[in-house]
Simulated scan of single mutants.
Amino acid sequence: MKPVVSALNAWSCVVISFFAIIILSILGSLFKSNHHSFTGSEGSPEDGAAVAGSIFTAVIVYAAFFVFCGFQAYLHTRANRRGAISLN
C-alpha cells in the first residue's frame, strides 16, 4: 500500500491527535464530574454531562485521526526501510 499523505503531515497529525486526546479526555472528565471550576459560575453550562458527551465525541474523532495518521506514518517508515525511491 502507498501512503496517502506525506510523512511530515502524518507525523504532525499523530502528535497533535495524541495531545488532543489527552487534553480533551481530561476536560471531558472534569465536565462529567461537574467540577466546580467548570460548572460553578453563571456563564457556565448547567448540564456538564451533555458537554462531556460532546467532548468525548471529539476524542473519538481524534482517536480515528490518530489511527489513520499512525498507519500512514508506518507506511512511510516501512517504505524507507526497504529502500524504496519515491518520485513525488
Rank of each mutant, 00 (worst) to 15 (best):
M1F: 09
M1C: 09
K2C: 05
V4Y: 11
V4H: 11
L8S: 13
N9Q: 14
A10M: 09
W11T: 15
C13V: 04
C13K: 10
C13E: 10
I16N: 06
S17P: 01
S17L: 00
A20V: 04
I23D: 03
I23V: 15
L24D: 00
S25V: 03
I26C: 05
L27S: 02
G28T: 09
L30F: 06
L30S: 08
F31W: 07
H35N: 14
S37D: 07
F38A: 04
G40A: 06
S41T: 12
G43R: 09
S44P: 02
P45Y: 06
P45L: 05
P45V: 11
D47R: 12
D47E: 09
A49G: 04
A52Y: 05
G53P: 08
F56G: 07
T57M: 13
T57L: 15
T57K: 12
A58V: 00
A58G: 10
V59L: 12
F66N: 03
F66S: 06
V67S: 12
F68I: 15
F68A: 15
G70I: 02
G70Y: 03
G70M: 00
A73F: 04
Y74K: 03
L75S: 03
R78Y: 05
A79P: 03
R82H: 06
G83E: 01
A84T: 06
S86I: 12
L87W: 12
N88Q: 06
